[in-house]
Amino acid sequence: MSNCRTYHDRIAELANATTDSISDLALQQHLAQCPSCRAELARLRRAETVLRAWPLAPLPHDLVAPVMARIARYPTEPGWQWLPWTVWVPALAITITIGTVLAANLVGLKLPESAPAALTLPPATMPIMASLRQPLGAAGRDLFWAIWFGLFFTLAGVGVSLGLMSRQSQLDDLTADLRERWEALRETARL
């Protein structure tokens, strides 16, 4: 029957209803002539009956004492934990991408070789400042960039991770939704 799908939702509703009577005339007529939808209704009704009688499993042990003990030791959990991979993998990828783009642009630039003339400093600091104003040697430049990139990657990584963490539930929704669609596709392929 090609139009069976149009009745699926109404059959599901009917299976969950507490009453057996069918007020929907079109559905009633379809069920009267369609054995596969009648079978579907019977199947869903049986599942509904079984589910409504689904007993709770008994607890192996009472949780009150252990929970209260944990609370008394509060705070017992580590203040930090590894971020889930759905956070740190994209965070790392984004950070590396931005870092590479920035690095490609920055390596062409030169460091300023002296402070602006307007900047006047107390005489005691002059010798230190004078040494700082000297152009950096090759090793100094490497160190400068190492520190700069270290700081950049750490801060960018933490920033992106925290941003993604706050979007974690949406990320989960998205992956759950994609999984759902995939399962639905597979289900249809099997039938």
């Binding site: 599901a12 869903l44 049986r46 599942a47 509904e48 079984v50 589910l51 539930s169 929704d173």
Partner: peptide
């Protein structure tokens, strides 16, 4: 923290899948 529609759809699919397994 899911939209209401997603919950209804999931429950409906869950019942249908379970019904087939029970059969």
């Amino acid at each position: 923290t899911l939209p209401l529609g997603t919950v209804k759809a999931q429950l409906s699919r869950a019942r249908r899948a379970l019904a087939r397994l029970l059969e």
